[in-house]
């Protein structure tokens, strides 16, 4: 740090510094000043900050007091060595402090150059310069970037890796579920059980089965008997319709050959029996709808009874209630 003492106090009156002979680095201050500079730290890496405190002490003549905008302290070419940023400033009675942040650009920088404050001294009526010494600094190469992130020294993992799972009390091994023995048992046993159950049910409920067959037989016999007493074709057709409704759940009111054929097909009656019914009903329709009285001409109760017996002989007839 260099101190250069000022010897003449400012008088306070407005004094304009002369333009003639004014140095180019004049800092637009009038009075008597000393200049000091202080740097911390003095050992840094490249581009690391060094804070420079510049203290100007003395008595200034207003309005030419030290102001950062007018100060020309740094020598020419300092930008090649440092990045310079202005920081805070502070003004007190007879003292002005200006802070700068300097960042050396290379390891070749050996010192912060001396500063110079060019001011106008009214007592001597001439421009004078206050200097500060150069400050030696040590600039080291920049260290390799080390990212200090917590958790970086372990393998990154999702949050589910963070906890240890509790162990179950019992074994959960499920090898039995895919063993051929258990699979075979699972497939065969239900089949055997169902088959045995059905067989047993049929064995233990023969009466119900026979009763059903007898019921069916009675319905057919009643219809055959009714057909024997029928005198006209519409009457016979009505008996057959009743039989179809009671015995085969036929939903129609008036059986037509096509509807009856379709219905019997849905109930599982085979084609020959259906064909006989269709032919017979078509013949009945032909007799019923010709002009004249619908007599029993061409009508045979035996033929109608044959139709009923043919239906009762169908395998699907046994499953009908």
């Amino acid at each position: 740090m260099l101190l250069l003492s000022a010897v003449a106090p400012a008088r306070g009156q407005a004094i304009a510094p002369p333009a003639v002979g004014q140095p180019t680095d004049f800092s637009n201050v009038v009075g008597v000043f000393t200049l000091a500079a202080e740097a911390t730290p003095t050992s840094v890496a490249v581009e690391e900050p060094v804070e420079l405190l510049v203290t100007i002490t003395g008595q200034a003549v207003a309005p030419h007091v030290p102001q950062r905008a007018h100060l020309k302290l740094f020598p020419a070419g300092v930008e090649r060595q440092f990045f310079i940023e202005p920081l805070a400033e502070q003004a007190g009675p007879g003292e002005w402090r200006f802070r700068y942040r300097l960042r050396p650009k290379s390891v070749d920088v050996r010192h912060i150059p001396g500063l110079a404050l060019v001011y106008y001294a009214p007592r001597g009526r001439r421009y004078q310069t206050a200097y500060s010494d150069a400050i030696p600094i040590q600039v080291k190469p920049r260290a390799e970037t080390a990212i200090e992130v917590k958790g970086l020294q372990v393998v990154s993992a999702p949050a589910s890796f963070r906890t240890l799972a509790p162990l179950p009390t019992g074994s959960r091994a499920s090898a039995w579920a895919t063993s051929l023995l258990s699979l075979s048992a699972a497939l065969v046993l239900p089949l055997l059980a169902a088959g045995a159950g059905a067989w047993l049910w049929r064995r233990t409920h023969p009466a119900a089965h026979e009763q059903q067959r007898r019921r069916q037989g009675r319905a057919a016999q009643a219809t055959v008997a009714a057909l024997a007493s029928a005198q006209t074709v519409p009457e016979a057709t009505a008996r057959l319709a009743d039989y179809l409704r009671v015995r085969w759940d036929y939903p129609g009111a008036e059986p037509t050959p096509r509807d009856v054929d379709r219905w019997l097909r849905r109930r599982g009656v085979r084609p020959p029996a259906r064909q006989r019914w269709r032919t017979f009903l078509a013949a009945c329709d032909a007799v019923r709808y010709v002009p004249g009285p619908a007599t029993a001409n061409g009508w045979s109760s035996a033929e109608a009874a044959e139709l009923i017996h043919a239906l009762e002989a169908e395998p699907c007839a046994h499953s009908q209630r």
Binding site: S174, W176, A194
Partner: peptide, 17 residues
């Protein structure tokens, strides 16, 4: 696998019934 085994057994038994 145990769950599939139970499903298989249940559905197969139901189907047999």
């Amino acid at each position: 696998p145990a769950c599939w085994f139970v499903t298989l057994t249940a559905l197969h038994t139901f189907g047999c019934a």
